[in-house]
Design a binder for these strands. Structure first.
Lengths: 220, 220
DNA sequence: ATATCAATTGGAACGCCGTTCCATGAATGT
DNA sequence: ACATTCATGGAACGGCGTTCCAATTGATAT
C-alpha cells in the first residue's frame, strides 16, 4: 500500500504549501500572504491549496508551528534550570525576531503541541529551580505572559514599520521627540530618551527576564 | 467667526464616528467594525466617514485612544508609588478586559499621547520608588512589556472565543486536557491543570505584576 | 433676497481578499 | 477496460477598504 505522497514528485502537500507561505510571509510581511500569491508561487490554483489546508487560520497556525518547533529543537537540554529558561526564551525571541509575523499568531493557538512544549519547558525548569509549589502557577504565568507579550510587541513593531526601515533611525526619531517633551509633565521620559536610543531589543528582553527571575527568586 | 461644528446638530464629526465605532467593536468584536456597518449605524455613506477619518487605522487608533484616556483618568493620583503602579496597571487591565479589541491596537501607536501618559506614569513612579537610575530603563521596560503583553494575550483570547462563550467552561476543557497529558513528558502541566481551571485572570495579572516589582526591588 | 462658493454628504464603483464550486485530469483497484 | 477515488486549477461569489464624484447644504458677499 504505497503512500500516495510521491505519486508525482511535484505534487502539492501541506508541507510544501506551508514552506511557501513562510517564504511569502518573511518576504512581504503579514499582509503578503494571500491565497492568490501563494497559488501563483506554487503554480497552481487556490482550490488545490484548499484541498490540503482548511483555511487561512489553519495555514498560519501550521506556519507558526513550524517556526516554533524549529526554535525549540535548538535549545540545549543540559543547562541548569535558570540558563535553560533563558535559552528557551532567547530561542523564541530570535525566532520571532527573524519571523515577526509569528508574534501575532503565537498566542492564538494555545493548544498546539509546540505551545505545550514551551509551557512545559518553562514550568519544568521552574520546578527544578526550587520554586515552592504554591508559587508555581504565578511564576509560570508571569514568565509565559512576558515572553509572549514581548513577542506580540515585536510583531506590532514589525507591522508598524516597513520591512526594510532603518530601526536605529526610527528609534532616534522617537528618542528625539521624547527628549523635547515638557520637562514638568514628562520628567521620566526625557531621561529615558538616551537609553531608548541606544538599547538593543534582545539585551533588553533578557534584562527583563532576569528581573522577573529575580522576583521569582524572592519567593521562599 | 463661529466654528462650523454645530451648524447642524446632527452633523457628523470624528467624535460621533469614534463613539459609534466603539459601540460596534464592543458589540461585534474586532471583525464587526466595517465602514459599511458604521455608515448604516450613522445613517450616512462611507464617503462621508472618510471626510472625517483618514482610514481604518486612524479610526482604530482614535477609538483606542479614547478608551485608554478614560482608563487613565480614573487613576487616583495620591497613591504611594507601588500602589500607583498597581492601580495604573489594573485600570488598563480592566479597560482592555471590557474592550478586548483595544489590546490588539494598543502597541501599534506608541506615539499617541495616551501612550506617553502610561509610559510616564510607570516611569515616574519607578523613580519615586527609589529604583537606582542605571536600572530605570530595564525596570520600566519589563513593566511596560508585561502590561501590554498581557493586554495582547487578552485580545487574542477574546478573538479566539466567541464573545458570549463561557470562560470557565473553556478553561475547564483545557485543564481537563492538560490533566490527561503524558506524565513522563508533561509532569508540570499536569500539576498546573488545577490552578489553571480555578484561576482568575485579574488576580493572576496582579500576582505577576507583584513578582516583577519584587524583582525590581532586588536591584540596589 | 439672491448668487456664489467651499464644505460636506451619500452612495456607486474599483480592486483585492478569503472562500466555494465544479469541470477536468491523473492514479489506482478490479 | 472500466469505475472510482484523489487531486487539481481556475471561475465565480460576497464582502471588505478605499476612491470618486454628483448632489446638497450652509455661510458669505452683494
Amino acid at each position: 500500500m504505497t503512500k500516495r505522497a510521491d505519486r508525482r514528485g511535484d505534487a502539492l502537500s501541506k508541507e510544501k504549501i506551508v514552506a511557501a507561505a513562510i517564504l511569502l510571509l518573511d518576504a512581504e510581511g503579514e499582509g503578503g500572504l494571500t491565497f492568490r500569491a501563494l497559488a501563483a508561487r506554487l503554480a497552481t490554483g487556490s482550490g488545490a491549496i484548499y484541498w490540503h489546508v482548511a483555511d487561512k487560520g489553519d495555514l498560519l497556525a501550521a506556519a507558526t508551528g513550524t517556526i516554533i518547533t524549529q526554535a525549540l529543537d535548538g535549545v540545549a537540554p543540559d543547562l541548569d534550570p535558570r540558563q535553560g529558561i533563558r535559552a528557551l526564551a532567547l530561542r523564541l525571541f530570535d525566532a520571532i525576531d527573524a519571523h515577526p509575523w509569528v508574534g501575532a499568531q503565537v498566542s492564538r493557538e494555545p493548544w498546539q503541541p509546540a505551545m505545550l512544549r514551551i509551557f512545559e519547558g518553562i514550568g519544568g525548569r521552574l520546578m527544578a529551580l526550587g520554586v515552592p509549589q504554591p508559587a508555581w502557577f504565578d511564576a509560570w504565568s508571569v514568565l509565559v505572559n512576558y515572553i509572549f507579550g514581548v513577542a506580540g510587541q515585536n510583531a506590532a513593531n514589525a507591522r508598524l514599520h516597513a520591512p526594510d526601515t532603518d530601526r536605529s533611525a526610527a528609534l532616534a526619531t522617537i528618542a528625539a521627540r521624547w527628549a523635547q517633551l515638557d520637562a514638568a509633565e514628562y520628567p521620566f521620559l526625557r531621561q529615558l530618551a538616551g537609553p531608548l536610543r541606544d538599547h538593543d531589543d534582545r539585551d533588553q528582553f533578557l534584562a527583563g527576564l532576569d528581573l522577573i527571575l529575580a522576583g521569582i527568586g524572592t519567593v521562599r
